[in-house]
Amino acid sequence: MKQILARPEFCVDCRLCQVHCQVEHSRSKDMVKAFKREATRPVARLRVEREGAESFAVSCRHCAEPVCVYSCLTGAMRKDPITGVVSVDSQKCAGCWTCLMVCPYSAVAQDKNQHRVVKCDLCPQLKTPACVANCPNKALILLEDKQS
């Protein structure tokens, strides 16, 4: 399965990963349009945390034991048994924020406009997730485990 590895030693806190994540999850997928014209600005699925000199992008780990899936009240969260990707069905999400509170990485984001959660989907349409592809310093890299 695919996993995004954050390397804090090379993170320059530019937050281009967030910007590109937002664009990839926008309606138009055009950076200027997504930010300036779309009615609701897309929410980034990952977030750069910074404390002093240390910074890195936090995104969903797609855990083997996904507590968000276990705790989801509506069955919106599910882990794909083949790809291992943990995803959320926005139709089913009730916006109860339980997953948000149980996630040990705070990797689930709130979309307050839609009143539902959004999270990293590893950009299924792209070969490499937008955040990894656009990190200027290889602080995010894609790990692919061929076994599963």
Binding site: V12, D13, C14, R15, L16, Q18, V19, M31, V32, F35, K36
Partner: peptide, 13 residues
């Protein structure tokens, strides 16, 4: 102004 998306990448860099 027509291109700036206020992402603040420039501010942080």
């Amino acid at each position: 102004a027509d291109r700036c998306i206020q992402c603040q990448v420039c501010v942080r860099q």
